[in-house]
Design a protein around this nucleic acid. Structure first.
Lengths: 305, 305
DNA sequence: GATTGCATATTGTCCTAGACAAAATGTTGA
DNA sequence: TCAACATTTTGTCTAGGACAATATGCAATC
């Protein structure tokens, strides 16, 4: 992050940095009076770092379901208070997390990977996912909100974590039994880390996972579910996706999948699904994967036995 | 890819699909009369698949350095001819490539990875990179141009290839000696595959590579080069990046790096660097990594001896 | 009380047409 | 052959309006 209290960014940079489209930034300025960037000699917007920081907080709160109409009337202090209030349980900040963030900022990807692999070996897959990976992603999200982390540094961490998790999954895969779970995300979802964590948890519990990766078109999900004779289709839904779009997609998917195939949704975005329609099961967290599997097996043994 | 001869896409979808910003699409229509999309009831643009296909070809040719002013006057046939002419050596289409594309389209990532790893074991790292990975990326680029591959499918292949290459590099790393090479990309470069191929080649030749991953800010490259006591800084530059931006960045980097540190540039974008300024060495292809290393070692032994 | 239906408010994205600075190209002179 | 300058090309930005999709508030019903 460039320092200097009066560091100014053009609108395209703000779009990259915050993920808010240029059109949206302009219309917010017109409607709500915020952000209110400076202008250069030819009238182009130049956003002070402070406003960009506030926009990051706004983005974060919107991902939790709050709406811009309210947020953009608040000043920086009120916004900050709201963010901290809603943050829920203070994330346990460990020495490992600090080390990871440091390695990330100094681009020592290989070192970071080695460190994480070591933790994985020491704690085992389950504890690694629940106590290290999941909190780390939260920490990194917070660090991004505070402007301490570049977007590409977040990408780098994601890459490293994915590599470590894949390696872990590959070493588990041998003893796989039912149910067969088809894991993927919806077409506009680009976050694959949650998916991978879920895959690790499920594989650990002895399920047989087949991952299609991210951004699979609905028709392909359906086709693969049938071709692979999946018992369960599991979707990972991040906080980014618009609730409406997701709801529609999930409903459509449920309609097109064979009735016998269960549909599980996890991730921050899954919590925002209205009342989960029948035939759609929302998992509140990674720790519920195990319970969901137990339930499925109980029902299935009963049905078959 | 949705079929149907009259499949229509809104402008946002075209942006996603082609990588051409909405603003650019609109100004091209105003200036050159192409593309000329249909309109829906409320006047919003709807692009027929044929025009999107042509836009993909235009994008491809622009990455080779051609300018839109010329390209957009041509009709589909002329454009196609130009594309095939410039394509140079026909890429050797092997059975493996067809298999890889098939596995990609059916989302069988794990299977694909297994297949590629097998080829890697059979052929060795050098032949794997030169004969399999590099041609495969070309094939995939072509397939994208023809609209046969979704963007996310390209991402998926990239991920798989990166995983396989990383694994290969990790197993080579033991016997590393001079020169120490710091490998990375410029800040706006998001393609990391070329970097990884280069790293594999260099590691294979006994060099000691330290990778910073993609999108490293200039200051961080300089800082890392000094901290790591690098002999060489190697940049991977894809066809996407604007030649001017790249030129400026490279010049700046050269100025800030210690004089004793060599600066190597590779990738399709490196070829477009004007006359390479003194102190900047452009590598024309992956097969030149080995020669560049030999040269460096010869000079360095001579200087020291 | 919980759910459904409908009116209202909010919100993101798209539109037009103009402007301008940065980059590429062409031209001139050493 | 190279540098300096003029011209054209090109991408990105601006303003203010519009509209459809979504969320919210409220009434009516099971």
């Amino acid at each position: 992050m460039q320092s200097g209290p009066d560091h100014l960014m053009p609108i395209a940079a703000v779009e990259r940095e915050t993920g808010l489209p240029k059109d949206t930034l302009r219309v917010w300025e017109r409607r709500y009076g915020f952000p209110q960037p400076d202008r250069d000699a030819s009238g182009d917007r130049l956003y002070p770092e402070a406003q960009v920081a506030q926009l990051r907080v706004v983005k974060r709160l919107m991902d939790r379901g709050l709406r811009p109409g309210r947020l953009l009337k608040l000043d920086a202090a009120a916004l900050q208070a709201l963010a901290e209030e809603g943050a829920g349980e203070a994330p346990p900040r460990s020495a490992l997390h600090d080390l990871a963030l440091f390695l990330l900022k100094t681009h020592q990807a290989a070192e970071l990977r080695r460190e994480l692999t070591q933790v994985l070996m020491r704690d085992g897959v389950k504890r690694f996912v629940l106590d290290t990976v999941a909190p780390l992603t939260v920490q990194v999200g917070d660090a991004w909100t505070r402007g301490e982390l570049q977007v590409y540094e977040e990408h780098l961490l994601t890459e490293v974590l994915q590599a470590v998790l894949r390696q872990a999954i590959a070493q588990l895969g041998a003893s796989a039994g039912p149910p067969r779970i088809l894991m993927t995300t919806l077409p506009d979802e680009r976050h694959g880390l949650g998916l991978l964590m879920a895959e690790a948890m499920a594989t650990l519990e002895g399920a047989q996972c087949v991952s299609l990766g991210t951004q699979t078109p609905l028709r392909d999900i359906v086709a693969a579910a049938i071709a692979q004779k999946a018992d369960v289709v599991a979707l990972s839904i991040s906080a980014n996706a618009s609730a409406a779009q997701v709801g529609e997609s999930v409903r459509l998917l449920r309609a097109q999948l064979p009735g016998a195939v269960a549909l599980w949704c996890g991730g921050a975005g899954a919590a925002r699904l209205k009342r989960a329609a029948k035939g759609i099961q929302a998992l509140g967290g990674l720790d519920q994967v195990s319970a969901a599997l137990d339930r499925w097996r109980a029902q299935h043994v009963a049905a078959r036995g």
